[in-house]
Every structure is written in C-alpha cells, then in structure tokens.
C-alpha cells in the first residue's frame, strides 16, 4: 500500500474531497467510496465501456483512469444525467425503444450517448454505430440502442428548435 493522497472530485455537481491511494481506479472510487454504483465494471481492460463516465467534456472509461489522474476533474455519471422527475431524453428513449435488457451496460451506454450527442447533435445511424463502438452490449444486438440514440437526438433537437 502506498500513502494516500488528498483527491478532489466534483461528481454530478457535488464536490468531494477524499483520501485515496494513487493506484485506486476512478471506477472504484466512484463505486466504493462515493457509492455511485451506476457505472459498472465489465472487462477492466478498457474494451467494454460499462464504466463510461464523462470527465470534463470527454467520455472516458473509468476503469482505465487512476483516481489520482482525475484529481480536480469534474465528472458526470448516469446519476447526474437526469432525475426521476426529469429524465434525460436518452433515458426516456432507451425505455421507449427497448434499448436495454439486463441493464448492466446501460449506464455506460447512455452516458456515452449523452456525450456523443453533444459532439454530434444530429448523427446518422452509421455515426451512432461508430460513436457507440466503445460500449459493448451482450443482450440487445445494438439495433434498439441505435434506435434509442437517434430518437433521443430528434427529441433534443426538437426541444432546441422549439426553444429558439
């Protein structure tokens, strides 16, 4: 065990100061220390994307980020995307279009999709498939995930237009 260091993380808008070993992985800090259990651990080698969170303005796989590297960062997880009373359009769309089954990949999937739609608000099906390719799902065959993301994009864009 190495000595612990003071780490500051802002997670879903709440600032946390905690002591952690530098080697602790961001996914473990979120899940074990902060009890934010939405992001999951699926492969541990940065292939499956179940642990995806938004760090700053980029999607990252939190199993392959040391908490020490994240020190000072602002992080959004699935828990920070919507509330039960005001779901994120992606959360609505995944339910509406059956974009999930066992639910294990879903937090990472939706969190990645949220960032994708920020980077590319009106993607084609091909762009969704390419942009979501860092997230594995074993249940759905992706067809309804892609449908969900496209539907959410349409909802978000329609809301934007209505607001303008």
């Amino acid at each position: 065990m190495s000595k612990k260091m003071q780490i500051t993380l802002t997670v879903n808008g709440t600032r946390h100061e905690l002591l952690a070993e530098p080697r602790e992985l961001l996914i473990h800090v979120l899940r074990e220390r902060l009890n934010i259990t939405g992001p999951h651990i699926g492969c541990e080698t940065s292939h499956c994307g179940a642990c995806t969170v938004i760090m700053g303005d980029r999607s990252v796989k939190s199993c392959t980020v040391f908490a020490a590297q994240a020190d000072g960062a602002s992080i959004t997880t699935i828990e920070g995307l919507g509330t039960p009373d005001a779901l994120h359009p992606l959360q609505e769309a995944f339910r509406e279009h059956h974009g999930l089954q066992c639910g294990f990949c879903t937090p990472g999937m939706i969190t990645r999709a949220a960032q994708l739609l920020k980077e590319n608000p009106d993607p084609t099906e091909e762009e969704v498939r390419f942009g979501m390719a860092g997230n594995l799902c074993r249940c759905t065959g992706y067809q309804n995930i892609v449908k969900s993301v496209l539907a959410a994009a349409a909802t978000i864009n329609a809301a934007k237009e209505a607001a303008e």
Binding site: S46, R58, S59, M132, A133, G134
Partner: peptide, 9 residues
Amino acid sequence: IADPQVRAM
C-alpha cells in the same frame, strides 16, 4: 485507433 473513449484519452 481503438474506440471513442480511448481516443479521448
């Protein structure tokens, strides 16, 4: 190279 999340880092 890799996938979107990996390319972000």
